[in-house]
Simulated scan of single mutants.
Amino acid sequence: MHAADASAAPSVEGRAVAPSFQVHAYAPVPRILGAVLQVLIVADLLYLSQLIVFDTFTGALNPTPPALSGWLALLALVLFGFLQLLRWFSAATFSVEPERFVLDRRGDRFEIPLSSVASLQIWRVPLPGAGLSLRMKSGRTFQYSPQVSDPLPLLEALGRHNPELSATAHPSLAAFAHARAVIVRRRWYHLAFKFVLFPLLPAGVMFRANQYITYGGAFGQYQMYGLGPYLQSLGTYWTVFTAVLVLLAALWRVPSELIAFIGAWLSPPRARGVRRFVEVANAVLYYVGFPALMAARFFL
């Protein structure tokens, strides 16, 4: 998740506490840099995956992924490190008070009257994440744009004190971002299961079949060549099937996001339902459809 949702606004001694949001406040250039880094990371991983899938099994007795794949993996890690560093520098707190909003960003504090804000615009391109820009009545855009995974609570907080502001944000874009933030709650262990543990299932099946076909038994390679080549062969199958699943997940994600966006555009109140349908369909295709397709291809 790119940024946390709003904290609760309890009362302290009868006084309401201003809602506060943990955001990433981007100036235009750092935001563009963050978007570019995200695009480069995705492109690098997709190229890495297709390289592994199509150039690993080339007829060699003990195939291994191409040497270039290691450098591409290292490049992805370096780019990800830069992206995390950029997000760390941009971390900020956005608080909405009755007559102003306050942005605290790494020692800088901005207190802007709500009356000086002319309009709010949800980012049409949600990179490096969902967020919004504040157009001032002076005609200029506020120098920092808050990126928050779910902009809807922030819009509602601003709208409570200035109803004109909530009306300026595009409802379909806000509904799309809100549905994604609420339904898609990925954690690191979700990704670890999806792209580290789950690929072991098809990899193990194919690795075992290869051991019987090539070496005459489940541990034939181990008995003939030792533990090192045996584990290297298993690792190769795991790497290849991880790459296959990365490509399939990316392929399915494109129409899924398009369907979710169209649903939010046509009917913002139904955006969450459409998003839930899309994510369930994705999970079924990934965890059930791919194994079923693999079984049909190799065992029927």
Rank of each mutant, 00 (worst) to 15 (best):
H24L: 14
P66Y: 05
V284E: 00
L120Y: 09
A130Q: 08
G263M: 04
L37V: 08
A174L: 11
P30G: 11
I112T: 14
S119C: 03
P291V: 06
A281N: 13
D5A: 05
P202R: 06
S7F: 10
L114S: 15
Y189H: 10
D150E: 04
F57Q: 14
Y237W: 14
A181F: 05
P66M: 08
A6H: 09
A174M: 12
L68G: 00
M294L: 11
A35I: 02
D150G: 07
V12S: 12
T64E: 05
Y26S: 07
Y47W: 15
L77E: 07
V23T: 04
S115L: 15
S133Y: 05
A169H: 10
V254I: 13
K137N: 13
P202K: 04
A203E: 08
A8F: 04
L120R: 10
Q121F: 09
G263T: 06
P10M: 03
H24N: 13
W238A: 01
A177C: 07
G107M: 08
P291D: 02
P19R: 07
L103C: 02
P63D: 02
Y286L: 02
S119L: 02
E164S: 15
T236G: 02
E257I: 11
G129A: 15
Q84A: 10
A73C: 04
A6G: 14
A9M: 08
I262F: 05
A175R: 09
I112V: 15
A3K: 01
A264G: 04
G131W: 00
S20P: 00
I41T: 02
P10V: 10
R31H: 03
L134I: 12
R208N: 05
L45W: 03
F219A: 09
L33Y: 07
F142S: 09
S11R: 15
L258G: 08
R87D: 03
V196N: 01
F80E: 08
F101Q: 05
K137L: 03
L83K: 13
